[in-house]
Amino acid sequence: MGTLAAAQPLLIALILAWSGYGKLTSPDQADRTALPRLLGESGTARPGWFGASRAVAAYRGVAVLEIVIALLLLRSWAIGAVAAVALSVGFTGFLVYSKIVVPEASCGCAGKSAKPVGNRAIGRALLLLATAGLAATASTAWWSAGVGLLVLVVEAAAFAMLSAELDRYWLLPLRRLRIRLGHPYAGTASDDTPLVATQRRVLLSPAYRAVDGLLRSDIHDYWDDEDWRYVSYAAKYDGRRATAVFAVPHQNSTPSAIRVAVVDEEGLTLYRPTVLATAG
C-alpha cells in the first residue's frame, strides 16, 4: 500500500499537465463550459461562437494552477498531494454543478470536446480525487515507489477510458474494426429505388422545370405501377386547384424520360408539356 500511495503523485502530475496544456491551447473551449454561467456572463449566444472574456481568463487560470500543482507534485509531493485533493474536489463540484445547471455545457476538462458533462467526466474527477487522497497518505517520494509505479499503467488506462477526449484514439477504431468484421446493415441493399432518389430525378428533369411555378406543396402521394413510379404534388393552374403528377420510369434514367401532367379535381388533364425532349 505504501509504495502504491507513493507512486500516485507521478500519475496525478501527468494528468494535470495534460489537462492544463489542453486548456491553454484551446482557451475558446471556456465558452462551451458552464464557466460563463458560473461567472454571471451567460448570454443567449451559442457556446463557442463568441468570446466570453472572464470565463476564458478563469479557464486559463485553472490551467496555470494545474501545471503549478503538477510541478509541485513532482518535487514537493506532500504539499502537491494536498493541493491536488483541493483541486479535484473543486473539479467534481464544478462538473456536478455543470450537469445540473447547464446540462448542455461541455466539461472543458482537457481542451476540445463538445460532449456535455456526463457520468464519465464526473467519474474521472472522482477517480482523480481518490488518487490524490491516496497520494496524501504517502510517506515516501514517488521516485522510490519501485513496483508501485507498475500499477500506474492500469490506473492510466482507467483514466483514458473515462476520457471522452481520447475516444477517437481507441473507442472509435475499435468500433470501426467491429463493423469491418460484420456490418449490422450488410443486408440492406435492395433493388427498390428510395423515394428520395426519385425526388432528385424529378428535380433534375425538364418536366419539373415546365411546371415548377404551378406546384403548391411537397410530395403529396407516390405509388409504383409496373415500369413507372408516380409522384404527385398539389398544384394551381389558372387559379384552379389541380394535381401535378410525374411519371418516372424505373429503367430509363435520362431526365427527359420523365413525364408530367396537370390534372384538375374533376380528372380533366389541363396541361401536359410535349416538348420535353428538346427542352432538356
Partner: peptide
C-alpha cells in the same frame, strides 16, 4: 431544444 437563438441571439 438546446439550439438556442443562434450566435446573434
Amino acid at each position: 431544444g438546446s439550439a438556442g437563438h443562434g450566435a446573434c441571439g
